[in-house]
Simulated scan of single mutants.
Amino acid sequence: MSDKKIKNIFVQGKIEPAFIADSIAKHSSKTGIGGHSIFMGQVRKDEIAGKLVAAIEYTTYEPLALEKMHEIREAVFAKYPLSCMHVYHSLGTINAGEICLFVFTSSAHRKPAIDACSEVVERLKAELPVWGKEIFEDSTHQWKENM
């Protein structure tokens, strides 16, 4: 593993639209970038067994999750010619309709940014130890399956 510092990707609560807009705006001065790719994960109001999901409560063991995210970050940077990558994942209770994941990749050209963003999202879903408990409108709950 490299000597690069492990970045904290976790935020308490939802990811605010203003934070996303500010993150995008900060890149206007980086004139070597020609393409960005953005993924935003939003909590769905799924119907499961006749009950509606009101929110998801996300939890993790941060030291393990951050180490895994660092491994993913390093592998993706080694594979694609990226200028930068930003990943933010919510912890705590996130209501249906709110943003819980924000992945933002940038490169000189669009294809590496798009491909890297897609790979990061897929790897997060498959490898990052973050668990979600679906909270239904009737206050019952169940652990969410990653799909």
Rank of each mutant, 00 (worst) to 15 (best):
S29E: 03
M147H: 11
R73G: 08
E57F: 04
A54L: 01
V130C: 01
L82R: 06
F10K: 04
Q42Y: 02
S106K: 13
I24V: 14
S37Y: 01
D3V: 13
T31P: 05
R73L: 05
V120A: 11
T105C: 11
D22Q: 14
I24D: 08
G35T: 00
M40T: 01
Y88I: 00
R110Q: 14
R123P: 04
A25S: 13
K14L: 02
I20H: 06
P129G: 10
S107M: 04
S23N: 07
S118A: 13
E47I: 12
E74H: 01
H70R: 12
A55E: 11
V87G: 12
I94G: 05
L124V: 06
R44L: 10
H27I: 08
H27D: 15
Q12G: 07
V11S: 14
V43K: 12
F136C: 05
A18H: 07
D46C: 08
L101D: 11
F19E: 01
I99E: 15
A78D: 11
G13D: 10
H86K: 06
T93H: 10
T60P: 04
P112M: 13
K144F: 12
M85C: 12
I56A: 10
L82A: 05
I114Q: 11
V11H: 13
W143K: 12
I6G: 06
C84G: 14
A25L: 02
R73I: 04
G132M: 07
Q42P: 04
F136I: 06
E62C: 01
P17S: 13
T105S: 07
P81D: 02
A55L: 07
K14V: 00
H86C: 06
E62K: 08
S37A: 15
A116N: 12
V130L: 03
V43I: 14
G35M: 11
H109N: 08
M147K: 15
H89K: 06
L101N: 03
E67Y: 07
T59V: 13
K30V: 05
T59Y: 00
